[in-house]
């Protein structure tokens, strides 16, 4: 492994920015975030980076590494070609704040527009429910989400078409799926998914699934079943036929 590497980091703010090169010593086992920290501590103390757990569990250090949306704490230098400068950019689908930090607050506002969990009455007088492991597991997959928003970052509806006001993106479709498929939930979000959250904008290119650090099968397990529910409720040909008759 190389003993030093160069990182070409985007430095700027909402008004604009440029790439700057920083060279730093590297060692076996290091991840990209380690290198960024080293540069920050030794060369540019005001380099802006957002991070927390450094263990792939909190989803704070999302960025684009050589053009690929990734968690900086889980990307090992040994998996990157260090012969060339490593390009580090903030996520593109959200407004820049400074350097590698973006304003992801839209995700939190958009989440509030999804109707919250509404359980059925408890199964027993002591206020408890019974659920089978198999039913729970289906939803547990979605609840692995660490809200890193990398799926939102690659979604072309958000990234290219900037439909943030109309479309909630893959992360929040996964959230909606977790609620809709929750064994205890009684709320109906299907109409909202069609009209308010425009699930129809998703044309299942699976980019979101490919970048998910938790390997959630976003498109197949979450979005497509939700699309089917929308179709069942609104576009059932038999129902339409009865309607006409």
């Amino acid at each position: 492994m190389a003993t030093q590497a160069t990182f070409r980091i985007w430095r700027g703010d909402p008004a604009g920015g440029t790439f700057q090169d920083y060279t730093t010593p590297v060692e076996e086992g290091m991840v990209v975030l380690d290198a960024v920290h080293r540069i920050q501590a030794q060369q540019v103390t005001d380099l802006a980076v957002r991070w927390n757990c450094k263990a792939g569990k909190c989803g704070s250090c999302s960025a684009e590494i050589n053009g690929m949306p990734k968690l900086m704490c889980m990307t090992r230098l040994s998996d990157i070609n260090l012969e060339m400068p490593v390009i580090l950019e903030p996520m593109h689908a959200f407004p820049p704040i400074r350097d590698l930090v973006t304003d992801v607050s839209w995700n939190f506002r958009a989440k509030k527009t999804i109707k919250q969990f509404q359980p059925r009455s408890p199964d027993f007088p002591d206020g408890t429910w019974r659920m089978q492991q198999a039913d729970v597991e289906r939803v547990q997959e979605f609840r692995k989400c660490i809200e890193c928003f990398l799926c939102q970052d690659v979604c072309h509806v958000l990234r290219e078409h900037h439909k943030h006001d109309e479309f909630i993106g893959p992360r929040l479709l996964v959230y909606a799926a977790a609620l809709e498929m929750h064994p205890l939930d009684t709320e109906d979000r299907v109409s909202d998914l069609r009209r308010r959250h425009n699930i129809g904008y998703c044309n299942i290119t699976t980019c979101c699934r490919q970048v998910c650090p938790e390997s959630i099968t976003i498109t197949e397990n979450a979005i497509i079943p939700l699309k089917e529910r929308v179709v069942d409720q609104f576009f059932d040909p038999l129902k339409q036929l009865f309607h006409i008759l």
Partner: peptide, 14 residues
Amino acid sequence: EAWGALFDRTKDGK
């Protein structure tokens, strides 16, 4: 659990 947490289950669903 009443707020939506999904814990792993026993065979009888607890």
